[in-house]
Simulated assay, not measured.
Amino acid sequence: MWKTITLFSLFIVINGQCSCSKFTNETNCYAYGYCLFQNGACKEAECEAIPYEGKCKSPRCLWKDDKCSTFKADEQTCSALLPQLCTKYEGCHYDYSNLKCVVTNDCSSLHIDQCNGKLLNGNFCVGDPFENKCQEMTDCKSLTTEFMCLSQSPHCKYENSVCSPQVCTEIKDEFSCSFLDECQWNNERCQYKNCQSIKFGYLCNGDTCGFDQNECFTCVEQYGYQLFVGLISLLFIL
């Protein structure tokens, strides 16, 4: 029989974030990430110190009862999250069978229709319905099936039975190039982003580059993982 399953699809971007201490200007400090400007310095904000909802964001912070607090995954806090917020917080996944957000402890223990969300270490669960398999994803190379790897395109590529990170210079179209924060489309080809060549702050700020002192600079703290979560529907025969 034919069956449709809706799964979370993960897209991984290999980069990091600028340290808040890199920003010396108060305006630029507030414009970037979780940074707050206090006592003449830009620093990473403790959730409890964030005074407004706009900067109280997942996966570290949760806005509740008109205040920002550090998120701690447990049955009570996960179950209180709306479906669209559930998988943005570490330690939670959405159970489509029972239509509720619950705690995530181990990807391999999840049924395929529960295979989504983050573990407490920040890694995501990714599944293959044809193999009926859910596993923890640390990077592209950790994905063990072709389906899992191709579901991460253009961030991962599958060649010679191996899943590996996409290389900017191998991407042939502007649309795919634009998905990767570390890549930029220039002179009709995809290249690694040259932060110093970017002239405007709104084009600069991201995981790869930061803007301060009227200049765009390269973030030092790279090689972490940022993930974008979307939804895909799969139709297959059981």
Rank of each mutant, 00 (worst) to 15 (best):
2 W>A: 14
6 T>S: 02
9 S>Q: 13
9 S>A: 10
17 Q>F: 10
19 S>W: 05
22 K>G: 03
25 N>C: 01
27 T>E: 10
30 Y>W: 10
31 A>I: 04
37 F>W: 12
46 E>N: 02
51 P>R: 01
51 P>F: 04
52 Y>F: 14
52 Y>V: 03
52 Y>N: 10
57 K>T: 15
58 S>V: 02
58 S>C: 03
65 D>N: 14
65 D>S: 11
66 D>H: 06
67 K>I: 09
73 A>C: 05
82 L>P: 02
83 P>N: 01
84 Q>C: 02
85 L>V: 03
86 C>M: 07
92 C>S: 09
96 Y>P: 00
97 S>G: 12
101 C>R: 04
107 C>Q: 07
107 C>I: 09
109 S>Q: 15
110 L>K: 14
112 I>E: 11
113 D>W: 10
123 N>T: 02
125 C>T: 01
132 N>Y: 09
140 C>E: 09
142 S>Q: 15
144 T>H: 11
146 E>T: 05
146 E>I: 00
146 E>G: 03
148 M>V: 01
149 C>G: 12
154 P>G: 08
154 P>Q: 08
156 C>G: 06
157 K>A: 14
162 V>G: 05
165 P>M: 02
167 V>S: 06
168 C>F: 11
169 T>Q: 13
175 F>R: 11
181 D>K: 12
181 D>G: 10
183 C>S: 07
189 R>N: 10
192 Y>W: 08
193 K>P: 02
194 N>W: 09
196 Q>H: 03
204 C>P: 00
205 N>D: 05
211 F>C: 06
213 Q>E: 12
216 C>K: 02
217 F>I: 07
218 T>F: 08
221 E>T: 07
223 Y>F: 14
225 Y>G: 00
226 Q>M: 12
231 L>A: 04
235 L>I: 07
